[in-house]
Computed example of a mutant assay.
Amino acid sequence: MFGSEPFRRLSVLPNMDIKGKLAIVTGVSKGIGLETVKLLLQEGAIVAGWGRTSADIDHENYHFFKTDVSNWDQVQASFKATKEKLGKTSILVNNAGMGYQGLIHEMDVEEWKYMFDLNVHGLFYCIKQVVPDMIEMEEGHIVNLSSIAGTNGVKTMSGYVGTKHAVTGIGHSIFQELRDHGIKVTTVYPGSTNTNFFDSIEFANANENMMRPQDIAQSIVQSVQTHANYHVVDLEVRPLKPKG
């Protein structure tokens, strides 16, 4: 009987060691991207920060490559420079993204296009670059930042919501393509987070009742550090008490 026999402790498998592994993180200047860079460096990873503005980090293992990920030519150039300087990429965190607010019939066409260029096309560009080396190494982890908006609709945010639904669909499809090559794909769905995202959003303001970006970064890094045969496909995180 279970109650009469000594409890047999299960063997604990070690986490994936990311020390010395190369991670590309996009959108590194602030918020979740910045905090993810800090934690990856703390765990011993080498980090290539891609963005239009660098993170305020002075660390021997942090290397900034000025990149607008919505631009295919810049992504190709940054990947070439990153690989030549730092080697092959084991981790990609697709964090860069933004949103404009507006009713569908009032949305500016160029703003709509830019959301898709950055949030969707940029994600594709980065994944396209890193995957061949990951396949060759039979190792890799791609983390895509979606949003709670990637699982439902939000009034006046149809463009942004559309991009995040695309991120969800891409992640769910490519994990099936890549899993047999030893490559993991994790899609993260943060709820309201205390970042500058809400600076231009009318119906909400960043506040202390929202999640801290460093906690989301911790969840991202923990998902990367899991055992090789343990795959976090979807990771939804929300504030426990969003109204305090």
Rank of each mutant, 00 (worst) to 15 (best):
R9A: 08
F7L: 12
K21Q: 15
S4Y: 12
V37Q: 15
A23L: 06
L10Q: 12
G3F: 09
I24T: 09
G3Q: 06
P14H: 14
R9S: 03
S29Q: 02
K19Q: 13
E35W: 01
R8G: 12
L22T: 00
R9N: 02
G33R: 13
R8F: 04
K19P: 05
S29G: 10
S11C: 05
R8S: 12
K21N: 07
K21W: 00
V12P: 00
L22V: 12
L13W: 00
I24K: 01
D17L: 06
K21S: 06
G20T: 07
S4T: 11
V12N: 01
K21A: 07
V25D: 08
P14V: 03
K19S: 05
G33I: 01
S11E: 12
L34I: 11
V25I: 12
E35R: 13
M16K: 08
F2L: 14
G31A: 05
F2D: 02
E5C: 15
E35S: 08
G27K: 14
T36G: 10
L34D: 09
I32N: 08
L10M: 12
S4M: 09
P14S: 06
V28H: 05
S4D: 04
V12G: 00
L13R: 06
L13E: 06
R8Q: 15
L22E: 04
G31N: 03
R8P: 05
G3Y: 01
L13V: 02
S29M: 05
K19V: 13
G3C: 03
L10I: 09
R9I: 04
P6T: 15
L22G: 00
K30G: 14
L13M: 03
